[in-house]
Design a binder for these strands. Sequence first.
RNA 1: GGUGGAGUGGCCGAGUGGUGAGGCAGCGGCCUGCAAAGCCGUCAACACGGGUUCGAUUCCCGUCUCCACCUCCA
Length: 456
Amino acid sequence: MQLHDTLSNTRRELLPALADDGVVRLYVCGVTPYSESHVGHALHAIVFDVLRRYLDWRGIPVRHVQNFTDIDDKLIDRANRLGVPMSDLAEQNIEDYFRQLRAMNVQPAHVYPRVTEVVPQIIEFIQGLIAKDFAYDSGGDVYYRVRKFGAAYGALSKRDVDDLLSGARIDPTELKSDPLDFALWKTAKPGEPSWESPWGQGRPGWHIECSAMALHSLGEQIDIHGGGADLVFPHHSNEIAQTEAYTGKPPFARIWVHNALLQLSGDKMSKSLGNLVTIADALERYGGDALRMFVITSHYRSPSSYTDEAMDAAKTGVERLRNAAFRAGASGGEVLDAGATREAFIEAMEDDLNTPRALAALFDLTRDINRATDAGGNTAAARATLRELCDVLGLSLQATSSSAQQAAPFIDLLVTLRTDLRAAKQWQLADRVRDGLLELGIEVKDGPDGTVWQAK
RNA sequence: GGUGGAGUGGCCGAGUGGUGAGGCAGCGGCCUGCAAAGCCGUCAACACGGGUUCGAUUCCCGUCUCCACCUCCA
C-alpha cells in the first residue's frame, strides 16, 4: 500500500513493516478532552479508522495507538472555571468521545494511552534529553534546544529554521535561551495539577507527551504517525526532534500521514463565536453512516466543507448502497460476479487510501446488482461482496433504529392491514396508512415480492 | 510577509496528455393502482491569460481567488 508521507512529500510503500514481527505500528495523535468533540474530530477518527479497517481486512497486522492529552492548559483552565477536577472533566469528555466513536462505527484503537499514566516515563525521557544536552533546566522549566537538532527541525514543515525565528513566540515569563526552544516541563502555577520531578513540582509540556506515549506503547521507531494537518508544526516537528535526539535512531516514523482539516463554512452568522458542529449534532441529524459517507466521499488530504447539502447527499448515497446490499433477489439465474469491483476497490485503497475511487467502485457494483436483479439474475454473492466492502469502509448499512425495532410488531401489523386494503383496492385507505407511517419516519415500499418497510 | 495546498458540470467530489469517474439534484421514459425503490436515456465542467505538443482539464510560466499552517487545535 502506498501512503503519502508529509516529511518526504512523496508516496511511500507501507510494507514491509519496520519491526521484525511484521506488525504495522500506527500512532495517531488524539484529542484533548477539554470540551465536546466536533465533526472535525469525527473526520479525523474516521480517516484513521478506514486505514485501520483496510489493513485488518487485508490481513496486515497493525497495532493502533491513539492518545488522550489529559494534561493541558485548556483542560486546566476549563476545569478551574467549572470548578471541577481536571481529571473529572477529562474523563467525562473521553467517555462522550468513546460513545460517539461507537455511534460512528469506529473500531477502537488497541491502546488509548493518557498523559497522566506516563508522567514517570516523560520525566525519564526529559532526563535523557538533558543528559545529551538537548534540553536544559531553567528555573524549574525545562526547554528543548531546537538549534542543536539542526536544519532537520524544519524538514517536516518545509521551513527554514532561521525563518522560524521571526515567528517564534516571545513570552517574557519564559526562561528560554533561544526563542525557538520549546517547553518540555513547566513549573506548576498555584492551583494547577502538578507532579513531582527532579526540577520541582510541575507538569509536562504538550509535545513531549506524544513522544513519550508513542515510545512506550509502540517502541523507538514506528511505521505510521498520523494526525491532523494542523499538527505538522510545531507539534510533530517537535516530536521528531525530541524522539530522535533521545533514541538516536532516525527516523522516528517512516510515514507521516496528515488528514486535511474540515471547513465549517456556510454558517457566517456565528463565525465570531466559532461555528462548530458537534459530533452529537451531526449524529442526531444524519446518523453515523451519513457522516462517514461524507468523510470518505472526499480524499483524506483534500479539505472539505461540512454543509447540510453535502450531508443530505451523503445520507441519500448510503441509502442507495443499503437498498442494493439488502435487496431481495432471485436465487436462480445468472450469477453476478463482483470480482472486478473487488480489484478496483483494492487498487483505489492501495493508492494512498483513495476512498472516493473505492466508493465509486461500490456504486458501480450497486448499479450492476440492481440491473441484474431486475433481470432475474442471482446477485446473492455480489450483494455479500458489497456488504463486505462497505464494512471495510466502516459503513454499517444499518437501517433500523432501536426505536423502530421496538415498534416493529406494530408496524408489521399496519403493513399487513394495508396489504389487505390494497387487495381490496381501497387505495385511499392504503395510502393513508403509508403516508401516516412515512410521517413517523417509516418508509413503505411495494415490490413484486410483497411490501417491505424501513426506518428513514 | 513566509511555507504548503486548492480552484472540475446546479451541488459534492475523483482522475487523466487524446477513452463515461462516482454520488446528490434536474429533465424525459420504463416499472408501479399511485408512490417509493430500481432501470434506461439526458444534461453539463475542468478559474483566467500565455507557452510546450499533432493534441492539454491534465505539463510549464504568469495573473486572480480561496484555504491551511507560521500561536492552542484532529
